[in-house]
Amino acid sequence: MTQNFDRRRHPVRPDLAASDYEGLADAGRFVEGEVFQVKADRLAMRPEPRQDRPIDTEALRGEWLTVYEQTPEGWAWGQLDTDGYVGWFSSDGLGPVTAATHRVRALRTYRYPAPDLKSVPLGLLSLGSKVTVTGEAETRGLAYALLSDGSAVVARHLVPLEDREEDWVRVAEELLGTPYLWGGRSSLGLDCSALVQLAAQTGGHDLPRDSDMQEAEAGEEIPHDDPAALERGDLLFWKGHVGIVAGPGKLLHANGHTMTVAFEPLEQAIERIAATEWGAITKARRLSAPEST
């Protein structure tokens, strides 16, 4: 078999592959995966089991990972359920599975050992993290959601999993000033495609992780030769980059030019990027209205 499998999307290696690929790929052995839940606030995923390799992406607390291998050195190799991304990550960041009920809608929220903002936080959850709410409590007039692990978060920072934002671009705008981080996928630091993925997710759009995947699969292709015809929420692609049309003549993107999530005049961005290795716009896409749940 000579088919090439994208390592980012297919759990296939020369020595090991998921059992679903038996008969489709050449591998030394095929294994059934075991499902875990991310218990770390953020879990870096890398192309190799080495701390000195740049991260490809991050899994967020509460997301599920199917693990196909764990090593004695503390590494695990598997696939993220949310967007199908495959990589290496620390086994220490994994825990048993619980069915999530809510996700974090605030840009970030502290997780406390008790429903009390004066207690020492256990961690900091980012936009898109998933939690299992088992109860509620109120302390000094502030409502908390009690979670399945015994911790608590501010209740108004959560929304039910099925909640949908009518204007998901507004969520991306809330991330203005967030530092640019290659491979980052949280409100503490993210890259261009993660900004698109996380914000669009709040509007009910499940997009792939990387810009080349989004360019091929997100919504439907639309003409891009007339910037004036673009609408809020349209996605513009360059080689290795994606930005969001936030309004007439306005681009919103996480970028290495400002090293932040920033607005940029669209015509200026087109001219500036054209003079770099990324060149001209390659495609524009428009997300369709998500199916109602």
Rank of each mutant, 00 (worst) to 15 (best):
M1H: 15
T2E: 12
H10G: 00
V12C: 05
S19N: 10
D20M: 06
A25W: 10
D26Q: 15
A27H: 13
A27F: 11
V31L: 12
E34P: 00
K39A: 08
L43K: 05
L43H: 02
P47D: 14
E48P: 01
R50Q: 12
R53C: 09
R53W: 07
I55R: 02
R61G: 01
E69W: 07
E73C: 01
W75T: 02
A76M: 11
Q79H: 05
Q79F: 01
D81P: 00
V86Y: 10
G87S: 07
F89E: 02
D92T: 13
R108K: 13
T109M: 11
A114K: 14
S119W: 00
L122N: 07
G123F: 02
G123P: 05
L127H: 12
S129I: 09
T132E: 15
G135H: 12
R140A: 15
A143S: 08
D149R: 10
S151Q: 06
V154W: 12
R156L: 05
L158T: 09
V159R: 14
E162I: 03
D163Q: 14
D163I: 00
E174W: 13
T178Y: 08
P179K: 14
Y180M: 04
Y180H: 11
G183Y: 05
L190N: 06
C192E: 05
A199R: 08
G203L: 09
P208G: 06
A216W: 04
A218G: 04
A228D: 13
D234V: 12
K239Q: 13
G240R: 09
H241D: 02
I244R: 04
V245R: 02
P248H: 06
H253N: 15
N255F: 02
N255D: 15
G256R: 14
H257S: 13
E267Q: 15
E267H: 15
Q268P: 00
A269H: 07
A269I: 02
I270C: 03
R272P: 00
W278P: 00
W278A: 14
G279S: 05
A280P: 01
K283S: 12
R286P: 09
T293L: 11
